[in-house]
């Protein structure tokens, strides 16, 4: 009889834990954002108009729609040797122009995240444990896309962030690694005016959460032509490597075994490749130095 009770309690616990999985059906949503970032503090913003934040089963995926489509098409377009397997899909793939080669996946149940980066054929994945931004909640209000929002500020991952969150969507998630406010973070910008996230819409997500797809794409090499993958729990290494890849042409060439590359304009005039290599990381380099 006692055993039976114990079994029933265990079953209940499992059921409860299953329910604890953040009531998946009720909470699965896809939010869209625009992401603005600078490569040079003195110049204007670059815009990624199609950022998505999928929230499903207590996990979130932050990614660019075009990049995700491009990544998933590449599974079909190429075989495991890296040769073209499907011409039609390859044609579609070449028409896509992804703008952002990074995404963030967070598992709130384990309080862990992976920051994924792609540089040409190189894939970098940095894992880490979430830390709670100590948001200072303010009474300031404004309406964003029809939702009443409140302001909060915090020093987080090396930058002073100001965010606007809405309790009308009571999800503790947000773009990139911003999270933990009493509602969905719908707008965020840093004090140096280098990064801005702007919410543009939300819809319920009944299928097609891209969390698993993105992790699979970044963590499992699909074909042999794909360059070295690099996964580590030392987030700092991944961040500094990607920053270097994006800001140092010689390092980029070295990492991709490129020799004697030239860039020309439509008229054949040679361009300075180094001028294209500019990047400001969202987590500043100083943050890692201070952490040591």
């Amino acid at each position: 009889m006692k055993n039976h009770n114990l079994f029933s309690r265990t079953s209940l616990c499992i059921l409860a834990l299953a329910f604890l999985a953040f009531s998946a059906e009720a909470q699965n949503v896809r939010c869209s954002y625009q992401y603005f970032y600078k490569k040079d503090p003195a110049k204007g913003f670059y815009k990624v108009p199609d950022m998505r934040l999928d929230h499903c089963d207590g996990r979130t995926a932050w990614y660019s729609e075009t990049t995700a489509i491009s990544d998933s098409l590449s599974f079909i377009a190429f075989d495991e040797t890296g040769s073209i397997a499907d011409n039609e899909t390859y044609g579609q793939l070449t028409r896509l122009r992804p703008k952002l080669f990074e995404c963030t996946t967070i598992d709130y149940q384990t309080q862990s995240f992976i920051q994924h980066y792609k540089s040409a054929t190189l894939h970098l994945n940095g894992t880490g444990q979430l830390i709670l931004p100590e948001w200072v909640l303010s009474d300031e209000e404004k309406v964003v896309e029809g939702y009443l929002c409140h302001k909060a500020t915090a020093q987080y991952l090396g930058r002073d962030w100001t965010v606007w969150y809405t309790e009308e969507i009571p999800l503790n998630i947000g773009p990139w690694l911003l999270w933990g406010a009493p509602g969905l973070i719908v707008e965020a910008r840093d004090a140096d005016n280098l990064f801005i996230f702007k919410f543009t819409g939300i819809e319920s997500l009944t299928e097609g959460c891209r969390f698993d797809l993105l992790r699979k794409y970044y963590l499992e090499p699909h074909n042999k032509k794909r360059g070295a993958d690099y996964t580590t729990d030392e987030m700092q290494k991944v961040e500094s490597t990607y920053t270097k890849l994006m800001s140092d042409v010689h390092f980029f060439d070295e990492a991709h075994h490129i020799q004697g590359a030239r860039a020309t304009d439509a008229n054949g005039r040679e361009l300075d490749r180094a001028a294209f290599f500019k990047y400001i990381p969202k987590i500043p380099t100083e943050y890692w130095k201070n952490k040591k």
Binding site: V29, E168, T200, I202, E203
Partner: peptide, 15 residues
């Protein structure tokens, strides 16, 4: 009930 008022994910209108 959580109301998803901006019930559409906006893609870039023209690319």
């Amino acid at each position: 009930r959580t109301e998803l008022r901006a019930a559409r994910v906006e893609a870039a209108a023209v690319e």
